[in-house]
Design a binder for these strands. Structure first.
Lengths: 252, 252
DNA sequence: AGTGTTTATCGTCAGGCAGACGACTATGAT
DNA sequence: ATCATAGTCGTCTGCCTGACGATAAACACT
């Protein structure tokens, strides 16, 4: 059939971001408060429209920078750091997911080290890091027994998918280091796994595993005692991205 | 900011399909010949526009049915079969990926058992199963030394991503059974792994692994000798979808 | 009938890795 | 000085895998 502009309906395309970090031993996601309808006043994932001349990954990186100030870690520049990991997650296109019009959202997953306070257009009260369990419990009650409204749109589903992706991906890749500062200890990395998976890991077996996997960790020579106790060696993330054999997530 | 329809550019949204099967010990993908510009006469992945009232998964299932006659296997109907596995793969939205206009394509991955001849609008010469290596070699020469044009658009990248997804996913899931007929033998399943990974597996260790994984295979009681040699037990796919521990892909 | 070929299936054995856990080390707090 | 905390090194046992021998049951020959 010949090219016929009337043969397809127009869509709006957005990127939504699942930005995860580990704060105070809990896996947290960035949420922003919606300032306009629909879902005005409700919490949502950060995101926005893809511009006319923009690739999807560019749009996601731009939104991430706007919301957090984070730049995206470019694997071709190994020395660089304080950049976040960013990858495409999935695309959501239910015809009714946005009541205004037909919107297809390409969700992305970002993993970042613990940051100072978030900013959403400079207004701190409209952006926060919240534990993912708190954001995902539908219509429950938060820590202070205040009612919790579910996330806007289908963002609860997107967040759940992003969390599941992160949980499974740190099994077989070195992505957990994306949650850590440039230099970190084995114990800090273990607490990342514990927070993301919600389990306790044996410190001795974990230490054996990560230090015994070639290319995973590179000792920097320094030590730190910021966690209390005996000083621990500092490491940087090594070049290896795939963990083989993988880190095993305990059952149950 | 208030709702402003002029604030976002319109996009066309399509679904493209990576349909994989195993034919004659080779991993093959479905390709269709383009009948109109751009890339007229070149091979491409099947796909089409998402309709105004259609979900992305619905659109992918519809395109799959149009091209192959396959229905999608619904996990909630365990008895049903001859359905294919269908899952979202990734979304491709480079501003220049289609020279006509801004098109975002949500690629899907389908795994199907070996089928009779394909059909594309009833015209067999415009659709074929081709080994993925043949479709992916850029500007090389095919089996009969005829020059091979690369796939249209960015479909080589999409196909490569789909193949990689399939290769990694059969490691830790029971998805390889989607390439098999409803009843199959351990040897047939092993030949699926060998074709998808392009390696040779030890029949004895493979047999021990798959029959020893609870829920992976369910014996039907029948036997077959269609492969020659000693009759082999027939199995159906069991309820387990995740393989733990995974099937290990040999190095190199 | 006998022999060879093919494929399926069962067994054995050694090495590697993970889980459980003991022991020791080096800090800061009381 | 003692305790609490966290890090690091070892040991042991069991499970799983890779390598590979052996047997079984069909078919194709001669």
């Amino acid at each position: 059939m010949p090219y016929d502009p009337s043969a397809f309906p127009p869509f709006a395309v957005t990127v939504d971001l699942v930005v995860l970090t580990v704060r105070r031993h809990a896996l947290c996601a960035l949420a922003v408060r919606r300032g306009e309808p629909p879902f005005q006043g409700r919490w949502a994932l950060p995101g926005g429209f893809v511009r006319a001349d923009e690739d999807l990954a560019q749009a996601a990186a731009r939104e991430l920078a706007e919301e957090t100030g984070l730049s995206v870690h470019d694997p071709s520049v190994p020395a660089q750091d304080n950049g976040a990991h960013l990858e495409q997650l999935a695309t959501y296109g239910d015809p009714k997911r946005d009541p205004r019009m037909r919107v297809v959202s390409v969700a992305h997953l970002a993993l970042a080290p613990d940051l100072p306070a978030p900013r959403a257009g400079g207004d701190a009260s409209n952006a926060r890091w919240a534990p993912v369990e708190e954001l995902l419990q539908q219509g429950g009650y938060g820590r202070d027994a205040e009612p919790v409204a579910p996330l806007a749109f289908d963002h609860a589903q997107i967040l759940a998918d992003g969390v599941e992706r992160a949980r499974s991906k740190i099994e077989y890749s070195s992505l957990a280091t994306a949650f850590c500062p440039p230099e970190f200890t084995v114990g800090e990395l273990r607490r990342v796994y514990e927070a993301v998976w919600g389990v306790a890991l044996d410190p001795r077996n974990f230490h054996r595993k990560v230090t015994g996997t070639p290319g995973f960790l590179v000792p920097t020579g320094g030590t730190t005692t910021r966690q209390g106790g005996r000083p621990a060696q500092l490491f940087r993330a090594g070049g290896a991205t795939l963990l083989n054999p993988p880190m095993l997530r305990p059952e149950v």
